[in-house]
Design a protein around this nucleic acid. Structure first.
Length: 304
DNA sequence: GTTGAGCGTT
């Protein structure tokens, strides 16, 4: 004969009485009819949690019978969070000559715990080369630091994922934006494309050329945009995948894709980059002529 | 006028 088993969704919820079968078992389908997604039952016996035996979709009563306890549902484990992306070394470009590791550590320490800080120096003279490397403990800190510019000791600095192995992956996060007009600033592009995903870099060649590069944090965002035409400030631009930079000259070893924040250019031919529009700074005001900069914060020029 | 700046003594 049918008896009724009190079952609730969670331990503290109000039970619903569910009918058993002729053989005294409770069908899992009877449970899931009331509690969608339930995959079993549990109860408490002398303070400890116990599971109800389940064979072939039938839940068997405990030895002491159904009425001895009240029951609640077991649900499948929610999907385990995907493994966190790991932190990579990050290059910090454009450091003032005077800036040492202490200042870099103090500045980026505000973004999260730092595992490594280096300022690269000339072996002979000990003078800073104007760049360094950092590594965060937490990926979230890395994300916070990428894709915006950083004012360190009076100069705007860029944080990017270094070239090389990591840089090759950056190629998949970057799109080529063709048919740009001169009216489209790096900030315009960053603001527009931020709607599709976090933008970590915008590059607009200077002097003007009719293209730009936009790098996203998520390669899937970049991929999804390829092949599309978009209208930005009335300009129809075409988006395609960014092909690797051509090797050649110093340092180019194949895929020189870069990722990172904005850049204060130093010489003719440098590009314009934009950071977070919300910061409200004006990239078109850059690069400042070196003579307008404090003596201790001239633009980064290798070997100068 | 459709492909980019600079990248690590180990």
């Amino acid at each position: 004969m049918t008896e009724y088993v009190p079952v609730s969704e969670g331990e503290l919820d109000e039970p619903i009485e569910l009918p058993t079968e002729e053989d005294g078992s409770l069908l899992l389908s009877t449970v899931s009819a009331q509690f969608a997604g339930a995959c079993g039952l549990k109860y408490r016996a002398s303070g400890r949690l116990r599971g109800v035996r389940l064979v072939d979709e039938r839940l068997s009563p405990p030895a002491e019978g159904w009425p001895a306890h009240r029951y609640w549902c077991a649900f499948p484990r929610i999907d385990p969070p995907p493994p966190r992306p790991r932190c990579s070394d990050l290059i910090v470009l454009g450091l003032p000559w005077k800036t040492g590791e202490e200042a870099v550590r103090e500045y980026f320490g505000a973004f999260g715990e730092l595992l490594m800080v280096q300022v690269k120096r000339d072996a002979r003279t000990g003078l800073s080369k104007g760049f360094g490397f950092i590594k965060f403990a937490e990926y979230e800190a890395q994300v916070r630091a990428l894709g915006r510019r950083h004012m360190i000791d009076g100069r705007w600095c860029d944080v990017r994922i270094p070239n090389g192995k990591e840089g090759a992956a950056a190629a998949h996060r970057k799109v080529f934006v063709g048919r740009c007009t001169e009216s489209l600033t790096a900030d315009d592009l960053r603001e527009y494309f931020a709607a599709f995903g976090q933008v970590t870099d915008v590059f607009v060649p200077r002097p003007f050329r009719a293209f730009s590069f936009v790098t996203f944090l998520d390669p899937e965002v970049a991929r999804s945009l390829c092949g599309q035409d978009h209208i930005i400030k009335g300009v129809s631009v075409n988006i395609s995948s960014a092909s690797p930079k051509r090797a050649g000259g110093a340092g180019g070893s194949g895929g020189g894709a870069s990722v990172g924040g904005a850049t204060a250019g130093a010489g003719a031919g440098s590009g314009a980059r934009a950071g977070w529009p919300t910061l409200g700074w004006a990239p078109d005001a850059w690069p400042l002529p070196p003579t307008h900069l404090p003596i201790d914060s001239k633009p980064y020029l290798k070997y100068e």
